[in-house]
């Protein structure tokens, strides 16, 4: 067993676990995007950053790939960490504003505006589908090709692959494929449904499909009405 400290809390975890595993085991929430329990850690999105070390030596690492070490002091919520995460989410929104996963992360982190040029890409290169195809579906039909700004995920020669069984695993796991809430302001760069827009409630507007399960608007409204 390894002993380390997360947010001032001494924790005990099994050998071979990552900081993320340890934090999740103790109920400490770290946002992730390219991490999935059934797949090998990849460290692409960097959303899971945490701060380790003390004073001048403190540095940011991705918790999903960093192994838990004895005596490690981890901060998952310091100012530096939250600021880094916010910028990362902003960049992700700028890359793919139509993704629900990304928009939800942005809302959760209270990102209120996007300062970067918005490109409507359909892929954020998180590599989830590539790992899904290889590790869970044992197919290895897709992968990364080219490099630099031309890097993309595709099948060999951009043609239908012989080993692809069209299982759909890649689409199932893709965070960019899932369309965001189609409620009001669906065309804006930033959804921020619960932060910015009028309440969308399943009860009143069932065609709007509010995805934010715990958005809380209705409760607030209720409270306000009661006060009156």
């Amino acid at each position: 067993m390894i002993e380390l400290t997360i947010d001032g809390l001494p924790v005990l975890v099994e050998e071979g676990s990552t900081i993320l595993d340890a934090a999740r085991f103790y109920g400490i929430d770290i946002p992730t995007l390219c991490h999935n329990d059934g797949l090998t850690p990849y460290g692409a999105c960097r959303l899971c950053v945490v701060e380790i070390g003390k004073g001048e030596n403190a540095k940011l690492v991705s918790s999903c790939t960093y192994p838990a070490e004895p005596g490690l002091v981890v901060r998952t919520n310091s100012k530096r960490v939250t600021e880094a995460r916010k910028v990362l989410v902003e960049l992700l929104v700028a890359m793919c504003p139509s993704s629900k996963t990304v928009q939800d992360l942005a809302s959760a982190m209270e990102v209120k505006k996007v300062r970067f040029k918005v490109e409507h890409n359909d892929c954020i290169l998180c590599g989830l589908c590539v790992r899904m195809c290889e590790e869970q579906m044992m197919a290895k039909a897709i992968g990364f090709v080219n490099r630099g700004k031309d890097r993309k995920i595709t099948t060999p020669f951009d043609m239908k692959s012989d080993v692809c069984r069209t299982c759909g695993g890649c689409m199932y796991i893709c965070p960019a494929c899932e369309l965001r809430c189609q409620g009001p302001d669906a065309e804006t760069d930033l959804c921020n449904a619960c932060l910015n827009v009028q309440p969308v409630c399943l009860k009143e507007e069932d065609n709007k499909m509010c995805f934010l399960g715990t958005c809380g608007w209705c409760y607030e409204e209720l409270g306000r009405k009661k006060k009156k």
Binding site: K140, A141, G143, V145, N146, P156, F157, V163
Partner: peptide, 22 residues
């Protein structure tokens, strides 16, 4: 050629292709 090499070496075609495009 890439297909042939991937078959002979038993490397998934996508790996050969990613390497060749990299």
């Amino acid at each position: 050629t890439l297909k042939y090499v991937s078959e002979k070496l038993d490397i998934p075609l996508i790996d050969v292709y990613s390497l060749a495009t990299f």
